[in-house]
Simulated scan of single mutants.
Amino acid sequence: MVRHASLFSQLTGLFNRNQFYALVLRHGSEKHAKGFSSWDHFVAMLFCQIAQAKSLREICSGMACCLGKLRHLGVKGAPKRSTLSYANQKRTWKLFQDVFYDTLHLCRQAPSPGKTKFRFRNKLMSLDSSTISLCLSLFPWAEYRQTKGAVKLHLLLDHDGYLPVFACITDGKTHDVTMARQLALSKGSIVVMDRGYNDYKLYAEWVEDEVYFVTRLKDNAAFMVLADFPVPKNRNILVDQTILFTGAVAAKNCPYALRRVVVWDKEQERKIELLTNHLDFGATTIAAIYKDRWEIELFFKALKQNLKVKTFVGTSENALQIQIWTALIAMLLIKFLQFRSRFGWSLSNLVALLRWNLFTYRDLWEWIDHPLETPPPEPAPIQYGLPFKGLGQHY
């Protein structure tokens, strides 16, 4: 007797089906649909990510060979390739975007593991983008260079649990600063970013809105020193001072006093010049904040290595958006399992073992705590003998 549904079924059970269908009605995703529902579509694309299916054929065949185990998923059956291809091309990716933010709300309800690295209460976030290269002959709408296509995935990563709280997919030519200007950051929050987001008007807006930033100072920035502060002993801080930009454009766009902290990087043996508008934190805290920005680089690396965002099962812009948003949803699910587990998973191991046990009948929460233990055998059914009479006897 099977006591649990498959792990994949229990994963899809984390989604609120009523809320999902409300989003379907909002976007009209099932208009003129014939048999293949939006839920079927979503489950198929989620299977593509977690099972790492490389093509439409692998998605459909992989689900078809598990046909007897699909009933708990709420799907009617494995889709046909043409049906799934048409859905990826025609059904709006905005449904998957909204499901992503609903899943983010689910992840925020789970306590993040470990203690925070910082004592301050300000919300700390990292802002960055990653370019996803595409073949221009297959994706002509994603022209990036003369012989190359690309799209950009822009992310805002919350350091409380390292969850992406904002995502946007644009063409490869969109500048990072363009997306940074669209963000509505709360007062008192701290955003850390690399030198690619250098924009003096944006810095001035954040100073006026009381939003703090930590970034790299441009090598050719012209400034005057207003004050020098003593640096802590036996630390890697070389310089701590307040400055004022003197360049014509910089002084006009950002006429505020900012802080320059120079850090010595022992590993690379180089100086790193940091720029911030936070004048109260210690210099070592500013340096630690910028160092923690590396987490968003690790997030992009984990996304590309463990999920399907480098090769695509469709060539239209809508299909590409659907696949990337589904990858982000799958990443949130994996993060949620990490938060709930006591096993101490690395993300890559969790993805691999989940893929190998996707249709195993075990309790999901017991499995993430004890994945290497052999499940107890199911009790054998009791067979009752029938009172047949001996052979050769007449009835």
Rank of each mutant, 00 (worst) to 15 (best):
G77V: 12
V351Q: 00
A110S: 08
H154N: 00
G68A: 10
D128N: 05
T276C: 00
I272R: 12
G77R: 15
S133F: 00
R145G: 12
L46A: 07
D102Y: 15
V99C: 12
S9V: 02
W264L: 06
I368T: 00
G390M: 11
A288R: 01
G344N: 05
A64N: 11
E143S: 10
D369I: 07
Y197M: 11
L183Y: 09
K301V: 00
D176W: 08
V151F: 09
M125E: 09
W206F: 05
R235P: 05
L350K: 03
A53P: 06
I382A: 08
A142Y: 04
T311G: 09
L183D: 01
T83W: 09
L386M: 11
L244V: 15
G68N: 14
F15Q: 04
G77I: 15
T311I: 15
R362L: 15
F100D: 03
I190E: 02
I368K: 01
T311W: 14
G35R: 13
A288G: 01
Y290S: 02
A33N: 13
K148Y: 03
K218T: 10
H105G: 08
I334T: 00
V151Y: 00
E366Y: 14
A51Y: 09
D158W: 00
F96E: 14
K187F: 11
L364T: 06
Q338E: 03
T116K: 06
K252S: 14
A51H: 08
T360D: 12
K335C: 06
C48N: 09
